[in-house]
Design a protein around this nucleic acid. Structure first.
Lengths: 349, 349
DNA sequence: TTGTACGCGTTATCAC
DNA sequence: GTGATAACGCGTACAA
C-alpha cells in the first residue's frame, strides 16, 4: 500500500492524496473526505522512511539516555518527551548501555535521524571533549556526570552535587551525629561520586569534625554502581568495619535501599541504631520502612530547563552555561535525633 | 554529507562507496581502505531513512510495551532486545501509554517502520480481536492481559495467573492463615486481575474456607493500577474494614510495597500481625523489610519463548498457541507460620 | 482545486 | 572491480 495505490483507488493524483493526508487547506472538502475514507478503509499509513528522507527537516530532538538502571532517570523519560512535544518537537528515544560509546550513539542519532538537537540524560561521561567533539547539533547535558578536571564549553543542567551533599550531611551533624559513614561512588568516579564525597568532607570540616578516611566506603567494581546490590554489599562492609557509626550517607536512594537490607540483616534498627540519608528522591523512597530522608532532585525543573534550553539552542540563542537547580532535603523518618535542644541525648544502648 | 560527496572526494562512484560501507567482498582492498578512511575522517554515517526506504526489508522486530510504570516489565526491555539481536533482528522500541491505542501503535509500527513482527509486552488489551484484526505481521503476546471471555487465535506467553495465584494463596493457608484479604485489580479488570482473584477463590474453596467477598479489595480507579500508591490506599481500607485478617495477597509486588507502608503506618508488624504475599518477583522485592515472599515470574524464560517464537512465526512456522511458563514461589520473610506441625499456634495478641 | 514530475540518499542491476 | 542509473515512497513546485 502506497500513496500511489490510494490515488488510483480514488481516481486522483498522488499529490492530492499527500495534501489530504497533511491537512493542506487547498484540497476540496469532498475530495479530502473521499480520500480519507479510502485511507481509513485500507489502514494506510505513510511510510516514515520516505517521509523523513524527503522532509529532511524533522523537528526531532534526540533523547540519549545513558545507564538506565536508575529509577531516578527512568522517571524522567516520559515527562521529557511531553515537554518536547509542547514545544513543537518530537522526541526520539535512544538508550546506550554502560559499555557503549555515547559519542558514537550521538553521531548515529544526528546523521541517521536528522536530529535537530540532543539532550543527554544521566550517566557518566568520561572524556566529554572527545565525546562531544563531533556533535554538530546543539545539545544539553542533563544530569550527566562529568569529570570535574575538564571543563567543556556547553550547556549543562544539574544539581550542585557538592553543595547539596554538604547540606545533607550537615543535617545529620545538626541532629547530633558525628560518626557518619558514606557509601560513595566507585574509586575512579571523578564525577558525581567525587562531588558528593567532597560535599561530605566539607560538611564535616565546617562543623569541626575530623575527616576519617576509614569512614569512606567506595562501591564495588564488579557490580553496577548506584545499584541496590552494591549498596547492600558495601553497607555490609561498613557495619563490619565500623560498628561505632550512628549514621550513613548513601549517595543515591537505590543504594540506600540496599543499605537498609544490610542494616536489618545485621539485627540493627533504622534510625535507632543507624540513621540513613539518601540522594535523588525516587518515588519509592517514601515507601521504604522507615520512609527515607533524602535529598530530592527537582526533576520537573530539570526537565523544564533542559527542554527550554534545547529549544533556545536550536534557535541559535544558546549560550554555554552551567545551570544549577536546587535540591531539597525531604525529612522523613530514617534519621534519629542524637541531640535534643543543643544537648547530646544520652542513650543506654 | 552524503554518499555522493564521499564518492567525489575519493574519485569513485557512489556504488563503490556503498559497497565498501556494506562490506561487499567485490571491492578492491586498496579502494575500500581509501574510502573508509575518508568516511572516518568526515564522520560520515549513512542516512537510515534512505537506507530503509531502499531496503524495505529491515529485519526489524517491533517491541511494543504497554503501561511501563511497572519495574517488572521495565526489566524485560533490554534482555528482549539482546535476544532479538542474537537471532539476527534489530529491535525497534515503542511505548504506548495507558490512554493510547495499542492497535494504532501497532499499525504505525508495521507501515512506518516496515516491521517484520511484533512482540506485545505487558499491559491490558481490551478487545484483542479489534486491536489485532489489522495486524498483518506475525506477533506474540508476551504477558499481556486479555479479557478471558474472548479467545483470539494467537501466540501468547504468560504465567498461568489463576493457577499460580491459587498456589500463592494456598501457601498462606497451609501456614495457617484463614482470614486472607486480597488486593485485586480494578473492578473492571477482566484480565490479569480477574484471573488472580479467581485463583484466590479457588485456593480458599479447595481448602474448605468460605469465600468472603468483604475480603476482596479492588484497586481504586483514579490512580494508576498496579502502582505503589494504589496498593497503599487500598491496604489502608483493608486495615480499616477488616482488622481481623492475618494475611493479605497483593497481586503485584509494587502493590505490596504500598501495602507495606500502610501496614507500618497502622502500627502493625509484618509478618507478626499481617503476612504479605506478592506477585511478579521484581528485583527490589528482596530489599523490602522484611524481604517479600512472592510468586516470581520467570522473565528469562518468557523472553526466550517470546523471541524464539516470533522468529519462528516470521519464518512462517508459527502456530497459534498458549504458552504457559511456570512461576515459582520464593519464600522470604513476609509470611508468618500460624500453624506449627499441623496444629494451630496460639497467640496472646 | 488538482495532476505531473522531480528529487531526497541509498542500494541493486546492469554494463563495462 | 567499478561506474552509471533506476528504483524505493513521499512532498512539493509548477503547470494546468
Amino acid at each position: 500500500m502506497t500513496i500511489k495505490d490510494i490515488a488510483e483507488l480514488c481516481g486522483v493524483g498522488t499529490g492530492t492524496v499527500s495534501r489530504a493526508l497533511n491537512n493542506d487547506p487547498r484540497v476540496k472538502k469532498e475530495t479530502r473526505e473521499r480520500i480519507l475514507s479510502v485511507v481509513k478503509k485500507h489502514n494506510f499509513i505513510p511510510n516514515s522512511s520516505a517521509r523523513n528522507l524527503k522532509l529532511m527537516d524533522t523537528n526531532t530532538v534526540g533523547l540519549l539516555c545513558m545507564g538506565i538502571n536508575n529509577p531516578f532517570f527512568q522517571s524522567m523519560f516520559h515527562p521529557m518527551e511531553s515537554e518536547l512535544e509542547k514545544l513543537g518537537y518530537s522526541a526520539f528515544f535512544m538508550e546506550v548501555g554502560v559499555d557503549e560509546d555515547e559519542g558514537e550513539a550521538a553521531l548515529k542519532l544526528i546523521h541517521e535521524k536528522n536530529i535537530k538537537g540532543i539532550i543527554f540524560l544521566g550517566g557518566m561521561m568520561k572524556d566529554p571533549d572527545v565525546v562531544l567533539r563531533h556533535v554538530t547539533v546543539p545539545y544539553i547535558l542533563c544530569s550527566v556526570g562529568i569529570d570535574m578536571s575538564s571543563t567543556p564549553d556547553c550547556i549543562a543542567i544539574s544539581v550542585d552535587d557538592e553543595k547539596e551533599s554538604e547540606k545533607a550531611v550537615s543535617y545529620l551533624i545538626k541532629e547530633g551525629h558525628e560518626r557518619i559513614a558514606i557509601i560513595a561512588g566507585r574509586k575512579d568516579d571523578k564525577a558525581v561520586g567525587a562531588l558528593r564525597l567532597s560535599g561530605y568532607k566539607k560538611a564535616l570540616e565546617k562543623h569541626g569534625i575530623k575527616y576519617d578516611p576509614k569512614l569512606v566506603f567506595h562501591m564495588e567494581d564488579g557490580i553496577p554502581d548506584f545499584s541496590a546490590e552494591n549498596g547492600y554489599k558495601t553497607m555490609k562492609k561498613v557495619i563490619k568495619k565500623c560498628p561505632d557509626i550512628t549514621a550513613v550517607f548513601a549517595i543515591s536512594d537505590v543504594t540506600a535501599l540496599g543499605a537498609y537490607k544490610a542494616i536489618y540483616e545485621a539485627g540493627l534498627r533504622i534510625p535507632e541504631d543507624i540513621s540513613v540519608v539518601g540522594f535523588d528522591g525516587i518515588e519509592y523512597s517514601k515507601y521504604l520502612h522507615p520512609p527515607l530522608t533524602t535529598m530530592v532532585q527537582p526533576t520537573d525543573e530539570m526537565i523544564h530547563e533542559a527542554t527550554e534550553n534545547i529549544d533556545l539552542a536550536i534557535k541559535g540563542e544558546g549560550k554555554a552555561k552551567m545551570i544549577y537547580v536546587g535540591a531539597k532535603l525531604v525529612k522523613r523518618d530514617s534519621v534519629k535525633k542524637e541531640r535534643e535542644n543543643g544537648t547530646k541525648v544520652k542513650h543506654t544502648s
